[in-house]
Amino acid sequence: MDHLDQLEAKSIYIIREAYKQFGNIAMLWSIGKDSSTLLWLTRKAFYGKIPFPVMHIDTSYKFEEIYEYRDAKAKEYGLDLIISRNEDAIASGMDHSSKLQCCMALKTNALKMAIEKRKFKALLLGIRRDEHGIRSKERYFSPRDANFKWDYKNQPPELWDQYKSKQSDEDHIRVHPILHWTEVDIWEYIKRENIPIVDLYFAKDGKRYRSIGCKPCCSPVESDADTVDKIIHELRTTNTAERAGRAQDKEDTYTMQKLRALGYM
């Protein structure tokens, strides 16, 4: 087994474990490269028939390409797609200058409402340890309390692929099947498996997005990488952080930490 085979085998094991332990679960799909890779792995784990819903948290501020790609793939893969939007907050209009408040209202709260409605016990998320310092502290199975708080100072031990399987009623568990992948791993895998990816990642007129989210908070990086191969080459030679173009990470050293402690993805 090569490196990608090993990463894949572990992720599939974790995805199957989450479904077996919790049954009523959902996968969060932001349509970005990471969660699209997670979706690919999840289809593999269940032989093409994912036995639970796939949820898109729609802030209404996403790129058009994201909506088009989402609807096309949902149909092609026969997904049980849930679109959750915090309609009240969207209707009242958002002030993007406070990222913390905007993300809280449109993402975290929209997610809270969806969980409350469907009583999901666990959520699959495509976060990776190398993305951001704070995310490096995550476990594969990570409990959140009723208020979505992440008690990162007192996490249960996790060893030998034995993940947290029991929870109290008020918790839900965040499951992170691709926690151990790096950004380059993701692209190498996209190449090997030929996973279709939103165009925004590929360079146009000397710029591309390395990380995608809401339009007002994402800026492209300088790049000529317009193919997967060129992206892999670019990543192997750069040392600029992946999320350098994301506003949440810039505003304040601790914004990301605050967001996560409050239940952000």
């Binding site: 249960p156 031990p157 060893l159 030998w160 692929d161 034995q162 947290k164 399987s165 109290s168």
Partner: peptide, 16 residues
């Protein structure tokens, strides 16, 4: 994998 185990107390892994 079959020579090691964990013990779960209440809701959490408590021993290897």
């Amino acid at each position: 994998e079959l020579g090691r185990f964990v013990l779960v107390k209440d809701l959490d892994v408590a021993a290897g």
